[in-house]
Design a protein around this nucleic acid. Structure first.
Lengths: 151, 151
DNA sequence: TTTAGATTAAACCTATAGGAATAATATGCT
DNA sequence: AGCATATTATTCCTATAGGTTTAATCTAAA
């Protein structure tokens, strides 16, 4: 399951993407409108800033902004950083590869090969979905089935 | 000035580098021996884990370990992530470049050119210094002047 | 002797507090 | 008018609390 951190990060980012031409956005605005705990969100935004995904202006009139166009911010990146590897087993992870300790036959392990497929399709979707995509999806009236037009 | 976060991260990493062949190291051990606030350190270590600099084992007998050899963990990386850009002005930053808002003549700005020099030598030192270097320095009896042998 | 459950030791996660630093703006003094 | 100072609004930083999950080990029952 996605951690709250990851979910909050994504929600805040989508909000910021929608508001991208309105200058700096207050933490308080994001927290209130998205119903996210303010102080916790503060930490998350700071981390996003350190990742160069957001930038900020301090002091009166300050706030947070995207550091790059929505189309350049991938869901996969955010999920990996805030939630950990996409892979469900370490032996199919790209970012945190490790042979399972109890592994007897790496090459022929069926579980691994299925899990690899799962990881790969997940990565393809999440790395192929940017903030721009998410904003477009939310702006459209389409149902789940027609998601494919976006991805 | 370096933030406490950055300093604590570096200290914990050096400690872990020294203990790298002794299996997982407890947060409590690091905190106590290095006199770092335990709960705060906990957050920092978690962030280092998300950065794939550390890995961990949960449960009894667990703890933290370096995720790669000390020679592959650069001070510059840690400082940038926990403290922000090395540059003292945004217009010479590599990771967070931005023209100064009040800038009149970018190309000929003397301040900028000096600051760029400062950033470059800083980056050269910090990116050239790894945990391995730090451990070697601390193990040696040499004085400040002979640091150059390490860098 | 194996197995199921209890205990314990650890990292992990969510959340919050309180104050410092920064920047814009307003206010008052010369 | 112009400058210094105070106020205010904001992010930024350090730190802590409390509970959850995970994993190893111990214990007791079958």
């Amino acid at each position: 399951m996605l951690s709250m951190r990851a979910k909050y990060a994504l929600k805040a980012l989508v909000y910021l993407a929608k508001a991208k031409d309105q200058g700096p956005v207050l933490i308080g605005d994001i927290a209130e409108s998205q119903k996210l705990p303010r102080k916790f969100l503060e930490q998350i935004l700071l981390e996003l800033k350190n990742l160069r995904v957001l930038k900020s202006r301090q002091g009166k009139g300050g706030g947070y902004l995207l550091a790059k166009p929505p189309a350049e911010i991938e869901m996969g990146h955010i999920v990996r950083v805030f939630n950990g590897p996409l892979a469900l087993v370490p032996c199919v992870s790209v970012t945190a590869f490790e042979k399972c300790e109890e592994c007897l036959d790496f090459a022929h392990c069926g579980i691994r090969r299925v899990m690899k497929k799962v990881r790969d399709v997940t990565a393809e979707i999440l790395d192929g979905t940017t903030l721009e995509t998410l904003v477009a999806i939310e702006a459209s009236e389409s149902d789940e089935a027609s998601l494919m037009y976006f991805i």
